Amino acid sequence: MRLTVLVDNATLTDRYFLAEPGLSIYIEDGGTQVLFDAGYSDIFVTNARKMGIDLLRVDDVVISHGHLDHTWGLDALIRLHTEAILEGHERVEPTFIAHPDAFLTRSCDGVGEIGCHLSVEELFRHGNVLLTAPPLWLTENLVFLGEIERRFEFEKAPPCGYIYTPDGIRDDTVPDDTALACKTEEGLVVITGCSHSGICSIVEQAREVCDEDRIADVIGGFHLLDAPPEQIEGILDYFAEVRPAALHPCHCTDLAAKIALAGVADVRETGVGLHLEFG
């Protein structure tokens, strides 16, 4: 399995890519190519082109959750495919995979829409759409973890605004927040978006779904920005017990959290341009 960071809040030093408050990761496993999130704008397309990655060959577009910093870039992906059709270029029709709540309207702090611009119906015009709350295996080794069971009291957080459902408006606890996990020779690689559901809960679900306790790496947003001390303490205790081989916290994880995590695990630098390979 190989992965490349296309969008993050920062780039690696002396790498001439673009960054923004968002996340997008390109993954290859066997013959399957996966785009995990699309960031906030079109920069993932620009960065991929500089890296020699052909996004028109992506089989699956996986959405970690419906927030704007992970989904608004989908507009650019659809433009890329539309232009390829008009110009007669070869392309793979992608399958969009997400939790059933990922494309609902959301609001927070007076902002009328912080969710995806595109509806499920609109996405169906540009590819296949597969919405699932249970886990879904994308390849023999790579799995969409589905709705995450919230297992730890210290990770529980207040609602993130409101979500507008067919049954009415409710507090948004981001039930669609999920992740990917890949079985490798070194153990599991867990790839997260924002971890609204709790980074420890995500890792536990990955271990359970994959029937593997070893954690080779966790990369992505850990949702640790000005996190309360009791949350940090619980997460540190958890990772001290799990003993991951490496951590690549990024996106929505602040410096204080990274420094704290470095006390119990091998925390490594992450940014646009990072490329990782696992057996």
Rank of each mutant, 00 (worst) to 15 (best):
L142A: 09
T139R: 06
S119D: 10
V120P: 08
T132M: 01
L118M: 12
L142P: 06
N128R: 15
R151S: 14
H126C: 02
E122T: 12
G146I: 01
R151W: 07
P135V: 04
E147P: 11
V143R: 11
L142F: 10
L138D: 02
V120R: 09
T139K: 01
W137L: 01
L131N: 00
N141P: 11
R125E: 14
I148K: 02
E122G: 05
S119K: 05
L131M: 05
G146T: 00
L130E: 14
L138E: 01
L130M: 15
L138M: 04
F124S: 15
E140Y: 13
R151Q: 10
E140W: 12
F152C: 08
I148L: 02
L138Y: 01
F124E: 15
L118V: 08
L145T: 03
R125Q: 15
E122I: 06
L136A: 04
L142T: 10
L118K: 13
R125F: 15
A133P: 12
L118T: 06
H126Y: 09
G146C: 07
F124T: 15
T132C: 05
T132E: 05
L145C: 09
R125L: 15
R125Y: 14
T139G: 05
L118G: 03
G127S: 11
E140L: 11
G146Y: 07
P134G: 05
E147D: 10
I148E: 01
G146N: 06
L130W: 07
P135L: 05
N128V: 06
L131P: 00
N141G: 10
E147I: 02
P134K: 07
R151Y: 08
V120F: 04
A133R: 12
T139C: 05
L136T: 01
E149R: 13
L142W: 10
R151F: 09
L118E: 07
L136S: 02
S119W: 08
E149P: 04
L131Q: 01
E121N: 05
T132A: 08
R150N: 09
E121V: 00
L118N: 11
E149W: 08
E140K: 14
G127Q: 11
G146Q: 03
G127T: 10
F124I: 14
L138A: 03
L130C: 11
P134A: 04
F152T: 11
E140M: 09
P135H: 13
E122P: 06
A133N: 09
V120M: 03
E140I: 08
R150L: 13
F124N: 15
V129R: 03
N128G: 13
N128E: 14
L145G: 02
E149T: 15
P135Y: 09
G127E: 10
E149Y: 10
L142H: 07
L130I: 07
F152A: 08
I148S: 03
A133E: 14
L131Y: 00
S119E: 02
S119R: 01
L130Y: 12
N141Q: 14
H126G: 00
A133Q: 12
V143Q: 08
E149S: 13
F144C: 00
V143S: 06
R150S: 09
F152D: 11
E121T: 05
R125V: 07
P134N: 09
